[in-house]
Design a protein around this nucleic acid. Structure first.
Lengths: 193, 193
DNA sequence: GTGCTAATGTATCCAGTGGATACATTGTCA
DNA sequence: TGACAATGTATCCACTGGATACATTAGCAC
């Protein structure tokens, strides 16, 4: 839909996603606006509409990039507990990006092939890290779902302070315990802001 | 902060929360606006600011009402699996309201006493339904967290169709299995829209 | 009862938003 | 070289949350 050739700007579509990701990462609480993005790119805000149907389409691009980054991080995890730790670390370190990734509605997720592919990379990383040798496919799939639900749910509840956990460290240990993993001696993740 | 006496309108503060809840329930995908709300109340949009500091404060009121409704529903659950079922049913039946409830940031949750109290009613209902006779407090608390994480995470992932579950019924069965509960023969929840 | 005062609601303005239409520019290729 | 389509700009619109200034009215002191 959006050509990748170099034109006036160079490659506005890619630059827009890059810069949008930067803006969203810089301040998760700030609301993202096309006009602010266009200004940082030195371009009329309407120029973005030559590359993205609307604001949602641009954010879908950002989300896809986010899932790719997440998959990259998760593929390094050698086992299940470190997979869970890496997932939680990513989400809490980049709350704005995580919101954009998870805020999409299902129509957007399945309507955008690039986005769906990036999500599937994450699922692939999960299957790889959570695989247990003897188990059948159904069991594997269910384990992926279980860990993902606990991680995603835990992150959401922690961020609203719905559950009365005093600190990030406490949360991190707790989520490992709840998932049924041993808690390592050393902190498995740096304190996100 | 907002007096509850009857004045010009009667009780605009309460009426506003009621009507906002109705609007949000009616169309979860529509973005909620103060002006649309004021129009439905037959009042200048600026009148709402005599009762709520800003849009967020009004939505905090809606969220508090939502948690009260959720607590009401959960208190009827006689055991853990039916607690989980009731929670999931509520969230999927009222997606807009659930978003408003869970979209708050922690500052809002803990800053508004009414909201915090409503959240605590939900936690109380959870403790009641998930209590196991012999267990100590720490174990109880952890079980509440585990079920809540699975429920909240599962709802989020299901609504974005992140996990490849074909239908709501499939999701409902799966989340019970994942939480370690037996799956009943009959559907435990009607299909939400 | 009669005013006074503060709570409530209104009128009007503002900057900012996403989006649309019409037009200018410019790279590419026939 | 020239036409055309891709790209970017100028300008407009309806709508949003919010602010300031003013009108109304309820309820209390007397």
């Amino acid at each position: 839909m959006a050509p990748r050739d170099a034109y006036h700007h160079g490659d506005l579509a890619a630059a827009a996603v890059d810069e949008a990701l930067r803006l969203i990462d810089a301040d998760a609480s700030a609301s993202f606006s096309l006009r602010a993005l266009a200004e940082r790119l030195g371009v009329a805000h309407r120029a973005l509409y030559n590359h993205f149907a609307d604001r949602e389409a641009l954010l879908a691009g950002v989300a896809a990039r986010g899932f790719d980054l997440l998959a990259d991080a998760l593929l390094l995890a050698p086992d299940a507990p470190r997979f869970l730790a890496a997932y939680v670390r990513f989400a809490l370190a980049r709350p704005g990006l995580y919101d954009v990734m998870m805020g999409r509605r299902h129509t957007a997720i399945n309507g955008d092939p690039g986005l769906r592919a990036a999500v599937d990379r994450v699922i692939g990383a999960a299957v790889k890290a959570l695989a247990t040798p003897g188990a059948d496919d159904e069991t594997q799939r269910r384990e992926v779902m279980r860990i993902w639900m606990i991680a995603h749910g835990g992150i959401g509840l922690h961020r609203t302070r719905m559950l009365r956990l005093r600190s990030y460290a406490e949360f991190a240990e707790e989520i490992l315990r709840i998932a049924g993993f041993p808690v390592p001696d050393t902190d498995f993740a740096p304190e996100p802001s």
